[in-house]
Design a protein around this nucleic acid. Structure first.
Ligand SMILES: [Mn+2]
Ligand SMILES: [Mn+2]
Ligand SMILES: [Mn+2]
Ligand SMILES: [Mn+2]
Lengths: 143, 143
DNA sequence: GTCGATGTTTAGCCCATGCTAAATTTGCGG
DNA sequence: CCGCAAATTTAGCATGGGCTAAACATCGAC
C-alpha cells in the first residue's frame, strides 16, 4: 500500500514537473532539429509536437521570456546557453528512461511513447536505479 | 537513440494522459478517503492534494459534469459507478508502478512520489512488463 | 435556541496551452 | 522585378487548473 504518506508532497512534485515539462521537451526538440537540419523553424516544431504553428510561436515566446531561447522576427529559433544546458540534461535523462524501458523488455515503439511522459517524473534516485538496471542487463553476450 | 520520426504521436499521447490525469487522481483519492473515514468532503481533498478548497470544488464539479461523481449542496462527495470503476483501475495501476519502483530498489518515499506522476504515462505493455518484473523479483531464489 | 467555528459556494482574478481566421512577411521561381 | 506560396504573426476564442476574498450554510457547544 502507498501507506499513510503526505500525499500532498507527491502532488506538488507532479505539478512542478508539469510546469517545466513543455520547456524541457521544446529545448530538446529545438536542439535535435538544429543538429539534424542546421536550424529550427516554428513549422518544424509544429510538426514534431503535432500542434498548430500558433501554439508553437506562443510556447517559444515563453521560452524566450524565460531565457531558454532567442529569435528574431521571421527568423529561426535558437537556444541560449541556458537552453542548451537544459536540452543536454533533458536528452540524457530521456535516453536513460528510453533505454531502461527497452531493457525491461518493451517494444521500441512503446518505449518511445511511454518515455516521453515518464521522463519528467523520474527523480534522481529513480534515474540512478534505472541506469544501474540498464548496466546490469546489458550482457556482453548480446548481439 | 529515440529512433526517428513521428514524435508527434508520443506527444499526443502525453497530452491525452494529462487530460485524464487529475480525474484519475481525484476518483482514487475520493475512494481512498471514503474507505478511510466513511465519507469524503472537499476539505479532505484539499488537504490531500495541497490545493485550495476552491480548486477542489471546481475540479469536483468537472468530475460531476463528466459523470464520475455526484454531490448535493454542502454534502459529501460520492463516486458514481463509472467513477468507482475508474478509481479501481487507477488504484491497481498505481500500485503496480509503486511496487515496481520498490522492486527496482528505490526508497519508499521516492517510489511514492515518483509513482504519482509516472502512473499516468504507463501503457498496457509497460504495465505488464512492470508486473512481470515484480513477480520475478519477489521470489528470493530466482532462476 | 443562539453563536461561532468550520466548511462550502460564489465572484473574480491569473497563467498555460490548445485552436481558427486573417493579416503580414519572406523568399523563390519565372 | 513580381507575384505567389509558405511561413510567421496577430487577434480572438476556449478550457483546465491554480489563487484570494467574501458571502453563505451547517452543526456542535453552550
Ligand atoms: Mn517529454
Ligand atoms: Mn505527466
Ligand atoms: Mn494515483
Ligand atoms: Mn497520479
Amino acid at each position: 500500500m502507498v501507506k499513510s504518506h503526505d500525499h500532498s508532497q507527491s502532488h506538488r512534485r507532479v505539478r512542478a514537473d508539469h510546469a517545466t515539462e513543455l520547456a524541457e521537451d521544446y529545448v530538446e526538440a529545438i536542439d535535435d532539429i538544429c543538429r539534424e537540419s542546421g536550424s529550427c523553424r516554428a513549422v518544424d516544431l509544429a510538426r514534431r509536437f503535432g500542434v498548430s504553428n500558433v501554439t508553437v510561436t506562443r510556447t517559444v515566446s515563453r521560452l524566450v521570456r524565460d531565457g531558454y531561447a532567442q529569435t528574431e522576427p521571421y527568423g529561426p529559433i535558437e537556444l541560449t546557453p541556458k537552453g542548451k544546458r537544459v536540452a543536454e540534461h533533458a536528452r540524457a535523462r530521456h535516453q536513460i528512461v528510453y533505454r531502461f524501458l527497452l531493457s525491461l523488455g518493451v517494444s521500441e515503439k512503446t518505449a518511445s511513447v511511454d518515455s516521453e511522459g515518464i521522463e519528467h517524473h523520474v527523480s534522481r534516485e529513480t534515474l540512478h536505479a534505472m541506469q544501474r538496471f540498464i548496466d546490469h542487463t546489458a550482457r556482453p553476450s548480446d548481439g
